[in-house]
Design a protein around this nucleic acid. Sequence first.
DNA 1: CGCCTTTTCGATAAGTTATTGAAAGTCTGT
DNA 2: ACAGACTTTCAATAACTTATCGAAAAGGCG
Lengths: 234, 234
Amino acid sequence: MTKDAAPSAAGRPRLSGAPTGSPRQDIIREATALFVAKGYAETTMSEIARSAGLRQSSLYYWFARKEHILQALLEENRSSLALAASLEGRSGPAAPRLYAVLHADAMQLCSAPLDFYEFERVARSQPQNFGAFFDDYAALHGLTASIVRQGVESGEFQAVESEDAATAALGLNEGLQRHYRQPLPGLRSYSAEQVSGLSADTTLARLLAAPGKLAAVRAEAADLTAGWNPSAES
Amino acid sequence: MTKDAAPSAAGRPRLSGAPTGSPRQDIIREATALFVAKGYAETTMSEIARSAGLRQSSLYYWFARKEHILQALLEENRSSLALAASLEGRSGPAAPRLYAVLHADAMQLCSAPLDFYEFERVARSQPQNFGAFFDDYAALHGLTASIVRQGVESGEFQAVESEDAATAALGLNEGLQRHYRQPLPGLRSYSAEQVSGLSADTTLARLLAAPGKLAAVRAEAADLTAGWNPSAES
DNA sequence: CGCCTTTTCGATAAGTTATTGAAAGTCTGT
DNA sequence: ACAGACTTTCAATAACTTATCGAAAAGGCG
C-alpha cells in the first residue's frame, strides 16, 4: 500500500483518461501549487484530485490522510538545518556564521510552500507523523544558540543568554516571514530577500559588540553561503 | 435582528430549561473559553451552543456567522493601541515609551483569547467585517515607527529606518507570542511576562545607542505603564 | 381573545474528510 | 491461453461541518 512511484500501467484506468505518470509525485506537485495559492486549510481534497486528474476518493489510495500530503512536502524542506549544522562546527568568527544561518532560514521560510504557522498547526495536531518537524526545529534552535554562545565567548557578541537570543532570532524570522507572505493592508510589502535581510540585520545589530561591523559581517556571510549545496554534506 | 442584550423573558423557552440571561454575552463568554482552550478553527458551533445552553441552530439568531462571534471578541481588545497613542505624543525620551508600547503589545498578544495569527487568518477571510483590525494594526505600526523616529532624531537610538524597525519590533512580538501560547517541544517555555520582556529587551538593545542604559529604560517604562487605564483617555 | 414580536427549535441543504467494496485493468505461472 | 493475484480507480456512503428555513412557543398589547 502507498507505494512510492509505480510507473507501471497496471490498475483500473482513470475515467478522465489522463496519462497516469507518477500519481504520487503528481499529487504532491498539484497540492503544493494549491497550498501556495490558497493555504492548506482552504484547499480541499476534491480540488487536489481534480488538479491531479483523478477522483477525490482515489486520492486516499496514495495518501490515507490529508496531512500525509503535507508530510511528504516537509521532507523536501530541510536545507537550512543542514547549513546550520555545517556552520556551527566551523572555525572562524561567529557573527558571519550566525548571519548566514538566520538569513538562510528566513529565505526558506519565505520560499516554503506553506506558511510556517500553518505548518506548525498541522504538525501539532499530528505529533506522531510530524515528529521530524519538531526535531528539526529543536536542532536548529540548538545550533543557533551554540553559535551565539561561541560569539559571546569570543567577545564578538554582547553578553547575552544564548538560548533566549536564539529564541528571539528564530521568532523574528517566523514573525517576519508573515509580512512577506501576507502583507498587511496599509503597510509596505517586502520581498523574501528584504525580509531575510531585515531579520538577520536586526538580530546581528542587537548582538554585535561592535555595531559598526554589521556591513562586513553581511559580506562575510554571503561568502559562507555562496556555493552552498544542501545535499553535498558529509 | 441580533439585538444586543434583551433580558426580557419573551420568546420560546429553551428545551434545556436554562435561565436565559443575556444570551449574546453568554455566547461570547463560552466561545471565548473554548477558543482559548482549543483555538478558533477547532471549536464548532455545536460545542459553543452546548456550553451556552441552547441548540446549534439557535446560535445563528444571535450571530449570523461564526466569524461574527470573533468580531465581537475583537472589540474588547484594543488597549495597547490606546497606550501607544497616548505615549507617542508625550514628551521625554523615546526609549522608555517604545519599551512600554512594545511590552504592552506583547502582553496583550499573550493574554488575548486568540492566537494573533489565527485572528489574522479569519480577519483576512472577512475583510469587510474586520477592517478595524487592519486599521488598528496600521495605526499601531505608525505610532511605533513615530516613536522610533523620535528616538533616532534625539540621538537616543542608532540611525535606523523607522518603518523597518517598527515592522521588526512588531514582528518579533508576534513571533514570540507563539512561544508563550504553544511552547515547541524540546524548547523551554516562557511566561507572558518573560516573552514580553524578551521581546522588548531585544528590540531596545538593538536600537539604543548606549546599550548599557537598557536596565534604566526598563525601569522608566514601568513607571510610564503604572496606573495606566485603557478606558480613561481623551 | 386574537395578533404581533421575540426567541428557540427541528429538519435539512451543501460542503468537508475519510472508509468501503466493487470494478477494471495488468501481470505471472503453468 | 487462461486462471488467479495484484494494482489502481471508482461510486456510494458515513459522519461531521457551517448555515438556512419555516414552524413552534412563549410574552405583550389592543
